[in-house]
């Protein structure tokens, strides 16, 4: 039952990727660090966003940020600020910009750029320590970025 929903979701996400409305990482326009336009045109799913934020192999945002709402996820880091109230402090466009490429908002930020595919030094093949070959995938898909932003907007 659960598996079907996940597969269906993956399928939809896949379709979203292929959708003409998906903005590729290189085509994103930032204004003062914010991205006004949705990357996919498909509304983000906050439940999926929370999953991306807390899963090590996905966003792993909790490695650096504490989020009270996700207290049941073990081990929140303290490298970045507490994200409680992020949806109050920032607009949706600003959050999209921060998650896609935080260095546009915060110069020299330690926060990784989750929707960027170029400009890396010695890019590896995931966590193998070997050199990357072929096309570069961003850390998160366009729809995952939208899902994360939708979740952050619930942190009011």
């Amino acid at each position: 039952m659960k598996r079907t929903t996940i597969t269906l979701f993956a399928l939809l996400a896949g379709l979203g990727m292929a959708n003409a409305e998906t903005v590729a990482p290189a085509d994103v326009t930032y204004e003062d660090g914010a991205i006004a336009q949705s990357l996919t045109g498909v509304a983000g799913n906050p439940t999926e966003g929370a999953k991306v934020i807390s899963t090590k192999s996905l966003g792993n945002c909790v490695a650096c940020h504490e989020i009270t709402d996700l207290a049941d996820v073990p081990f929140h880091g303290e490298v970045g600020p507490l994200l409680d109230g992020a949806g109050d402090r920032w607009s949706e466009a600003e959050l999209r910009g921060i998650v896609a490429n935080a260095k546009m908002m915060f110069e020299g930020s330690m926060m990784p750029s989750f929707y960027k595919t170029d400009g890396f030094i010695r890019l590896g093949n995931a966590y193998t320590g070997k050199a990357h070959e072929g096309e570069v995938e961003p850390l998160l898909t366009a729809q995952q970025i939208e899902d994360v932003v939708a979740y952050l907007m619930t942190l009011q």
């Binding site: 792993n60 909790v62 929140h76 880091g77 990784p112 030094i121 010695r122």
Partner: peptide, 21 residues
């Protein structure tokens, strides 16, 4: 280095004493 764009200094100079996960 890498897709996470982190240097030794990011973790061990700027953030020692902090938890990372």
């Amino acid at each position: 280095f890498g897709q996470l764009e982190l240097s030794c200094a990011n973790c061990h100079e700027d953030n020692y004493g902090n938890m990372i996960r």
